[in-house]
Design a protein around this nucleic acid. Sequence first.
DNA 1: TACTTATATGAAAACGTTTCCGAAACTTTG
DNA 2: CAAAGTTTCGGAAACGTTTTCATATAAGTA
Lengths: 336, 336
Amino acid sequence: MTIKDVARHCGVSVSTVSRVLNNKPDVSGAVREKVLKAVKELNFVPNGSARDLVSPISDAVGIVFRGDSSPFYMGIIGAMEKVFSEAGFTTVVENVRHGQDELWAGAGLARSKRLRGLAFLGGRFDYTPEDIEKLDVPFVCCTYTNSFGRLSADSYSSVTIDDIKTGYEAAMKLIERGHKRIAVVMSNVDDRSIGELRYMGYRKALEDSGIALDPALLIEAGEYSMAAVKVAVEKAVDDGLDFTAVFAVSDILAIAVMKALSNKDLRVPEDCSVLGVDGLEMASYMVPSLSTLAQPTEELGEKGARVLLDMIKNGSPGSHTVLSTSFVPGGSIAEI
Amino acid sequence: MTIKDVARHCGVSVSTVSRVLNNKPDVSGAVREKVLKAVKELNFVPNGSARDLVSPISDAVGIVFRGDSSPFYMGIIGAMEKVFSEAGFTTVVENVRHGQDELWAGAGLARSKRLRGLAFLGGRFDYTPEDIEKLDVPFVCCTYTNSFGRLSADSYSSVTIDDIKTGYEAAMKLIERGHKRIAVVMSNVDDRSIGELRYMGYRKALEDSGIALDPALLIEAGEYSMAAVKVAVEKAVDDGLDFTAVFAVSDILAIAVMKALSNKDLRVPEDCSVLGVDGLEMASYMVPSLSTLAQPTEELGEKGARVLLDMIKNGSPGSHTVLSTSFVPGGSIAEI
DNA sequence: TACTTATATGAAAACGTTTCCGAAACTTTG
DNA sequence: CAAAGTTTCGGAAACGTTTTCATATAAGTA
């Protein structure tokens, strides 16, 4: 079952078998065919570990993401894998569970599998450029807005959307339609999350529009789940919270919001408008269809992968790209 | 940065370093601490390839699934990973693209990574027990109804639901509520798919209830996607197809059906009932909530993983388990 | 004290590949 | 026909670990 068995079976050396296995030159046609036949017969598959061990560099890049595998992450991962595989790289995807240290996990992965590069997906990222430098491997961060405010570091790359701007635009879309009391739904605001940044944008939009901020309109579910959001929104309605629109920081949460409103006999959009962020396929299948600020998922993944490849292959310095969301109007928002 | 560097750095042999790295006995407390400190300092991570190469057996099992990463698959994979990791195994997940040979991919994976076992997830599986035997590795097939009708093979295991029975029960739920003209929605019926089996069950239910089968009520979208289903259902309505209920072979498709009906100004459930299969979390957030035959996702994954572990650790012969779906009533179906 | 037993450590083999280097066996050239 | 070049192949080192075995030291026993 090893390369030696193949070699013995057809009376050649292991070097020769290795050569034909890797399509190297310097082997005659006759021998090549003989070996190939033996490989088929013996049902031989090379041991990947041994292969990786000896070849100085691997052709693998890693993608690590935190939390559950949301459709949004999957979209990005799919786009990245496509680019990587076209460039002849294999991809290893690692899901780091909540509570684990994702950079540490990534470091372990990179070291133990000798990765050529690492991409990180996730909402929150608390490391400094120095931390990333310690990884000593090309690094790109996607779907993340730098929370330590040093986007200029060229030791790593980032491809992101501007979450503050997204929050601003979301609020503006609703304000433009006459809404003044706009609830904001998220898991938590106090954990340096994306939600916090989008809330910042929301507040700026209110300020620019001369609308007073009402902190009571911030609905925190406590955790990032549809169930928690549904409960929180239902409670808000029960408590008599007065609002004409809801801005949910993601489509998944927006869908839960719509359900909660429906449960409370509030019609969307007649009684309350709902706006999400992400642009999931599922959003357009809601009744009414969910209005959303679509993230450029494909573009995030593709650009992220290309930037990483550029660092790997050409040793380019890190670059920082900010992409834009696009408004996808649906039936879930109305003028007031 | 290798184990040798660590050894040299603290003046001990590689064997000693290896021992502390693997929590082996026979090393004094002082040396252990010294090595541990050096490992931290040098930021050393063992080379996984070398490790895998030398240790006779790995502790990894593989999960291969076909198609996109649906929430349903993710649920099963999550449940499996939990069981495997509790048993001290690591999991490698492989997604085989449409058109690839999944058994071949699995074989390659198993061989090259020296997997201890293999789990397959997916709707259709065209291999014979003999094919599986050739893999020469413990094998379990989940979410799959054996299409070659030889469930008794003990060279591999399966944990599945009875798709024919599921189709039967789905139809019965609707028939019980007075429906006689029930449309069936799926991608294709003619590819030995799960859909075909559920359609068989549907026909049996009609027969048992003395309702004539109308082949026109079978709506094939051509491909498994929400977009295709929406188009197909809208076309069916436009063509004047007469039905009072729809049985969609999955929740995702059912959601697309609901959207299509809404686009055609048909109310759910007043004008048309809709029933899905899977029991996705998302289903309960639809408005109205989608009635569904929930698959025992957790159970499928857990049972599948346990059966595989049993084969790996105890050399048990294959076993074949058939689990049941449970009806989750929602607002999408009504009496007629 | 002298002998056995426990404990801690190092040297070296092994895992299955790839690749460098050199040696045949041919082929071309002058 | 000899020298030089080509092609094809095998030997052996190397990759970074784990593990077995032997050995040196420490501890226990009579």
